[in-house]
C-alpha cells in the first residue's frame, strides 16, 4: 500500500500565498494573498527575495491560522535551489524545529503529506509546510543568464515567482486531508530539460493510478484534480497515460502550471516550479473549499528530480509525484 488513510483528518487551518508581479497579472491573480511590486522584493539578490517570500508565506499562514509562531512545532519546507537554501535560511528566522524537504516541484505535496501523517498520529500539534520558487534564481541555476539573448523552445515552461505555506492542525477549521499517497520515482527516459512535462507525466500517472486503485475511487469522484506543473503538453500526455491505464479524466482535471499564465504572457507550455502549485493550493483551492464551491480535491503535483550535473552527463530525468486528498470539513 502506498496510500495512508488519515482517520483523525488533519486540517489546513491557515494558508498564505505570495507571488511576483507577472504572476499577479495571471488568471489566479485575484486569489493570491500578496502580489509583490517587483521581483527583487527590495532585496539585493533574487536569492534573498526568494527567502523573504518564504518568510512572509510562513508567517502569513501562521497568522491566518490564528496562531503564534511559538505555537508551531515543526516547519517542513523545500525549494529548487541547490541544498534548498531558500527554505533552510528562511527557517533560520523562525525559532522552531525544521525538516528540509526535496521533491522538486512536488515539494508542497510531500511536505503536506509528511506533516499530515505526523499530525494524524498526534505526534505534533501544529505544523507549517512551505514551498516556493523564483524565476530569476531558477533560471540562473538551471538555464542561462537572464540577459542572454536566446529563444525559448515551444515545450519549455516558465518558472513562476511564487511561494505558498499551509498550517496543519487537528484543532480549528479548514479543508481536511483524508488520505495521502506517496509516489515512486518513475523515469521513462526523457532527457530534454526543456520538456519537463513529458518527463514528469508518467510519475503523476503512476501515483494517480495507484491512488485510484487503493482508495477504490474514480476520477469523477473529485470536484477538482490538480497537478502541479506538467504544463500544456505534460497534462495532455497525462490524460493519454491514464486512459491507457483505464481512467478517463474529465473536465474536473486541471494543471496549475498550464493555467498559471494567460496566453498573452508568452510562457510557451505554461508555468512551472514549486511555487506554482504551492501558491494555487493556498489561494484558489483553499478559498474555493472554504466557500464550499469545491468539496473534494485530489492534489497531485509532480517533481523532476534532475540536476544540471546529471543532465550534462547525459542522464534522463526521473519524476516523482505525491497525492493528497482534501475534503471540505463540516457536516
Amino acid at each position: 500500500m502506498q496510500t495512508i488513510e488519515l482517520k483523525n483528518r488533519p486540517k489546513i487551518v491557515g494558508g498564505y500565498s505570495i507571488v511576483g508581479p507577472k504572476e499577479g497579472r495571471g488568471p489566479f491573480g485575484k486569489y493570491f494573498d500578496y502580489v509583490m511590486k517587483s521581483d527583487s522584493f527590495g532585496e539585493k539578490t533574487y536569492e534573498l527575495a526568494e527567502r523573504k517570500m518564504f518568510e512572509i508565506a510562513a508567517t502569513g499562514a501562521i497568522q491566518n491560522a490564528g496562531l503564534m509562531v511559538s505555537d508551531v512545532n515543526l516547519m517542513l519546507a523545500g525549494d529548487l535551489l541547490n541544498q534548498i537554501i531558500s527554505s533552510s535560511y528562511a527557517a533560520r528566522a523562525f525559532n522552531m524545529p525544521y525538516l528540509g524537504m526535496f521533491g522538486a516541484c512536488s515539494t508542497m505535496a510531500e511536505s503536506l503529506a509528511v506533516g499530515a501523517v505526523l499530525i494524524n498520529g498526534r505526534h505534533l500539534k501544529n505544523v507549517v509546510c512551505a514551498s516556493g520558487s523564483h524565476f530569476s534564481t531558477a533560471e540562473r541555476q538551471f538555464r542561462f543568464p537572464l540577459e542572454l539573448g536566446c529563444q525559448r523552445v515551444p515545450t519549455s515552461q516558465w518558472t513562476v515567482t511564487a511561494a505558498g505555506a499551509s498550517v496543519l492542525s487537528l484543532e480549528g477549521s479548514g479543508p481536511e486531508i483524508v488520505s495521502v499517497t506517496f509516489g515512486k520515482v518513475i523515469d521513462l527516459g526523457i532527457k530534454d530539460v526543456n520538456n519537463m512535462g513529458a518527463a514528469m507525466a508518467p510519475a503523476a500517472a503512476d501515483t494517480m493510478a495507484v491512488h485510484f486503485e487503493e482508495t477504490k475511487h474514480k476520477p469523477e469522484d473529485y470536484d477538482l484534480i490538480l497537478t502541479g506543473d506538467l504544463g500544456k503538453l505534460g497534462s495532455e500526455i497525462l490524460i493519454d497515460l491514464l486512459e491507457a491505464k483505464g481512467y478517463k479524466m474529465g473536465k474536473n482535471y486541471s494543471d496549475c502550471g498550464h493555467s498559471f499564465f494567460t496566453r498573452e504572457q508568452d510562457t510557451m507550455c505554461g508555468g512551472s516550479g514549486c511555487g506554482a502549485n504551492a501558491a494555487v493550493l493556498n489561494s484558489y483551492v483553499l478559498k474555493k473549499m472554504r466557500k464550499g464551491e469545491v468539496k473534494r480535491v485530489l492534489f497531485v503535483p509532480t517533481g523532476a528530480l534532475m540536476s544540471t550535473t546529471a543532465t550534462q552527463q547525459g542522464e534522463s530525468i526521473p519524476g516523482v509525484s505525491h497525492a493528497i486528498v482534501l475534503e471540505s470539513g463540516g457536516k
Binding site: P154, T155, I190, N195, A198, K232, L233, E236, I237, D240
Partner: peptide, 8 residues
Amino acid sequence: AYVEARIP
C-alpha cells in the same frame, strides 16, 4: 517516440 509526436 510518443512524446516526440505530441510536441506542438
